[in-house]
Amino acid sequence: MSVRNVLLFVFALFSAAMLGLAAGAVWMVATLYLRHPLPWLALPIGALLAWAIRSFVRPAGVGAALLAAWGTLLAAIYVNMLIVGILIAGNMGMGLIDAMRTAGAGMLWQLARMALSPPDIGYTALATLLAAWLAWRAPRKRARAIAADK
Rank of each mutant, 00 (worst) to 15 (best):
S2E: 06
R4C: 01
V6E: 05
V6A: 11
L7F: 07
L7P: 00
L8E: 09
L8H: 11
V10N: 02
F11A: 13
A12S: 13
A12H: 08
A12Y: 09
L13I: 14
F14I: 10
A16H: 02
A16I: 07
A16W: 01
A16T: 11
A17N: 06
M18N: 07
G20E: 02
A22V: 13
A23T: 11
V26L: 15
W27V: 13
M28V: 12
M28Q: 10
L32F: 07
L32Q: 12
Y33R: 15
L34I: 14
H36N: 09
H36Q: 14
H36L: 13
L38I: 12
W40D: 03
L41R: 04
L41Q: 03
A42S: 12
L43S: 05
L43V: 13
L43C: 09
P44L: 05
P44D: 08
L48Q: 08
L48K: 00
L49E: 06
A50M: 06
A50R: 10
I53C: 04
R54A: 15
R54L: 10
F56N: 11
R58D: 00
P59E: 12
V62K: 00
A65V: 06
L66I: 06
A68P: 07
A68K: 09
A69F: 08
W70A: 09
W70R: 06
W70S: 09
L73K: 01
L74T: 05
A75R: 05
I77S: 11
V79A: 02
N80L: 13
L82Q: 10
L82V: 11
I83Q: 13
I83Y: 12
I83V: 14
V84S: 02
I86G: 01
I88A: 04
A89T: 03
M92V: 15
M92T: 15
I97S: 08
D98L: 13
D98W: 04
D98P: 04
A99I: 12
A99L: 06
M100A: 01
T102Y: 05
G104I: 09
G104A: 09
A105H: 08
G106S: 09
L108P: 01
Q110R: 14
L111V: 03
L111Q: 10
L111A: 04
L111T: 01
R113P: 00
M114F: 11
M114L: 13
L116C: 00
S117V: 12
D120Y: 04
I121P: 00
Y123R: 07
Y123M: 14
T124E: 01
T124A: 07
A127W: 07
T128P: 04
T128Q: 03
T128W: 05
L129E: 00
L130S: 04
A135F: 01
A135Q: 03
W136C: 02
W136M: 05
P139D: 05
R140A: 13
R140Q: 12
K141V: 15
K141P: 14
A143H: 14
A145Q: 15
A145S: 13
I146M: 09
A147L: 15
A147D: 06
A147Q: 14
D149K: 15
